[in-house]
Structure formats: C-alpha cells, structure tokens
Amino acid sequence: MKKLSKTPLFAAADIFIIALVLALAAVPFFISVKGAGAPLSASVKINGRDAGSYPLDNAGEFKLVGENGIEMTLVVDGDGVFVKDSSCRDKICERTGKITREGQSVICMPGRISIALEGETGGADAVVG
C-alpha cells in the first residue's frame, strides 16, 4: 500500500478517470436514438416476465401488482407514463417521474417491476428524411 502521506487530494491522473467516466456516460447518446418518432408503448415486466404493454395513446390508470405484495398505479397519458401510489416505502419509482422517450424506464426493485418505453413496431426499420 502506498504511503498515506504521499496520496494527494487530486493528481493529474485523476483527470483520466473523470474523462473515462464521462466517455462511458456519453455512449447511450450514440446508440439510443434509433426508432425516434415511432408510436410508443410502455412495456411492463414483472420478475423478468412480460406483464403487458400499454400504448401511450390509450390513456388511463392501470393497477400493477408485483412481487412481495407491492402494488402501484401506472398512469398512461398521451406523451408518457409515470407511477403513482406505490405501496413500497422507498418510492423510488414515483420519484423517477414521467418518462417520455424510448428506452427510458421506471424501476421498482422491491416489486421487481420494470416499465420501459418501447417503439410499438420494435423500433423503426427505416427512417426516411
């Protein structure tokens, strides 16, 4: 182990670490743009199994029941979905807020529920223009 007194608060090499993390963070911006503009639907999985798909143009409130007795209300409106009234105490899914773009997701760990926006056609095959 390096001598403690020799470890600086900030070293030049730290810039490399920060740049690497920034580069990793930039990756999704280059791969998640396809299919933009396709009609979206919220695909729900519970414990890894498909548990329904909710097209965004079919607005309404839907009850989801996950593992460990966790229940929540999925609200679908014209341009996105969000979760309200989750019975879990963490409320992480509620704090995620509304998701509106393809690829975004709302996750409930205790209930093993994941909700993600997907293009209804499984992504655009061809975008012209």
């Binding site: 993390v21 920034l22 963070a25 760990m109 993600a116």
Partner: peptide
Amino acid sequence: LLMGDVRVFSFWWLYLLLSIAAGALTGV
C-alpha cells in the same frame, strides 16, 4: 440480474455523471 431485465441500465449515463459530482465531493 434480480429483475431479469437489462432495461435498468437506461439511466446508467445519469448515474455515471452523478458519480463524478458525488465522488469528487466525498473525495475532497
């Protein structure tokens, strides 16, 4: 792994950006 769904990674980029801010604070 717990959820059986890789879609949890959709906000990875945001967690990475925040780890720079939070990591720098605790590092200082």
